[in-house]
Amino acid sequence: MSDDLTIREPPKILVPIQVLEGQTLPETLVEFLAPASVVVLGYHVLPEQTPTEQASMQFEERAQTAVDDIAYAFHEAGREVETRVAFTHDRDQTVARVAADVGATATLLPNPVGEIDDLLVAVRGAIDIDRLADLVSTLVGSNDRRVTVWGVAPSDSEFDAEAGVAAARETLLDRGVAAHRITTEVSASARPVADIVGRTDEFDVIVMGESDESLSSLLFGDETERVAEGAIAPVLVVRKRSDRSTSG
């Protein structure tokens, strides 16, 4: 835990769980996340013909209990977590609102996972490297977990994947992740998102940045969501700093 000295911004992870659909967190993931501060958001998505009030009248207790169970699992792993329960018609709106509300640095998109040994950090565009490194180094801790930093971008992209990966590696080393645990790779890819999804079976947890609003995200939905849908492993999405607009 001496690593903490070099952490600039203690990571806070928002963990949204579809509680009433019986979604839970694997025990290994709870242990993996426990070094960071965690906010568990139990949510339930309703079709628009159902008022949120109506659903909460009938299912509030069940949702609260399910969230408390997850909070208890974190408690067992030595971490007290904040819990929220929400009924909504729009999952993304709720997750984005709560993430901004609690000042989360990353959002988890849960998927089943076993032992967590290998992390993939996908760098596919400008990303907040400090936040990324704070998160990854906190979670990797002094364990033997391996981190693969993979720069993946189209060959004609403005983003210099090579430099991005090097900077990420440097910052991870600064935060105390041992050099022998970091592997770097750079690939040119016309379809970075699809390629990241394709490699999710090689790793236990994926870490990536939020997508920019782009034409393709308007047409095909948010890229991180497409990764989450296709991914076999849990995905941690590093959020952009909300104060970015005031500083630049």
């Binding site: 329960v85 929400a86 018609h89």
Partner: peptide
């Protein structure tokens, strides 16, 4: 503007 909150603290998202 974005939610109502129940007595138990559950948030009801406003989405329209």
């Amino acid at each position: 503007d974005e939610t109502s909150v129940t007595e138990e603290g559950t948030e009801l998202e406003r989405s329209i």
